[in-house]
Design a binder for these strands. Sequence first.
DNA 1: CAGCTTTTTAGAACCATTATAAACTAGTCT
DNA 2: AGACTAGTTTATAATGGTTCTAAAAAGCTG
Lengths: 132, 132
Amino acid sequence: MKYIEKLRNSGLRPTKQRLQICELLFDTEKTFHFTINELNQKIKDKIDNKISLATIYNTVHAFEKKGYLKQIPVNSNQTYFDTNITDHHHFYNLKDGKLIDLEKSDVGPINIKKKIDGKKIKSIEVLVKLED
Amino acid sequence: MKYIEKLRNSGLRPTKQRLQICELLFDTEKTFHFTINELNQKIKDKIDNKISLATIYNTVHAFEKKGYLKQIPVNSNQTYFDTNITDHHHFYNLKDGKLIDLEKSDVGPINIKKKIDGKKIKSIEVLVKLED
DNA sequence: CAGCTTTTTAGAACCATTATAAACTAGTCT
DNA sequence: AGACTAGTTTATAATGGTTCTAAAAAGCTG
Ligand SMILES: [Mn+2]
Ligand SMILES: [Mn+2]
Ligand SMILES: [Zn+2]
Ligand SMILES: [Zn+2]
């Protein structure tokens, strides 16, 4: 299994649940955006055994901490995650709450001219809201 | 009272509660960012009578709908609002969860090269996360 | 004031997320 | 293998921000 190494290298034990979640999240043609609720549905659909909701939360947060997932800042009652961990931006379709990737090259360089003493920039994220 | 007109013109009755909230939000030297919880505290501190939490939510959402407040997309369990309704961006200090304004001139023009059929851009928001 | 609509309010409900603590599992060491 | 330990999963409860409810209060118009 290709994820056993990955998990071990991160100090995470390669449990059955984590490996199954890895497959759902990372064994895909394209990267994608999801909420915990959507991931929970997908797990119910595609996996025989049950994975408890608590484990899904734990796993997603563990993966986020290790940098295998990113959280996307949007105004929603649910948290959005992204399996695309490259530096990129998003369209946010207000109609259906779906995110669409905007590659860095689709936006051009962003030059933050203001500086805050003693702080450094961790990330720059652009959210482009779309309406009809 | 200067807010009576403003509210009436928006189709909102100028109630005591709304006028008091207007003063707290808009009678300030500088604009500011707040969560409902912080606004609730400020109301308890600066206003004699009580305003119920439901009214605070109702009022903030009514003001947002009328365009007197903006919601800022951040990853937080609470919703952040902004009394600065001009087009601008934000630093987000991860340490204390505080927002700092970034004027458009502090960021420079953002050119979104990608187009989505049948959709138009409603807003472009940049969030710059800060760490130590 | 009367009549009608909007607003306020306390409290309940909702629901995403986090905490708890007991059962289970993976890895390590004989 | 068995025993030991730390890490993980799980059902379930708790938390907490936000929304809903429905009755009382307030604003508006005539
Ligand atoms: Mn989270
Ligand atoms: Mn809200
Ligand atoms: Zn993305
Ligand atoms: Zn602002």
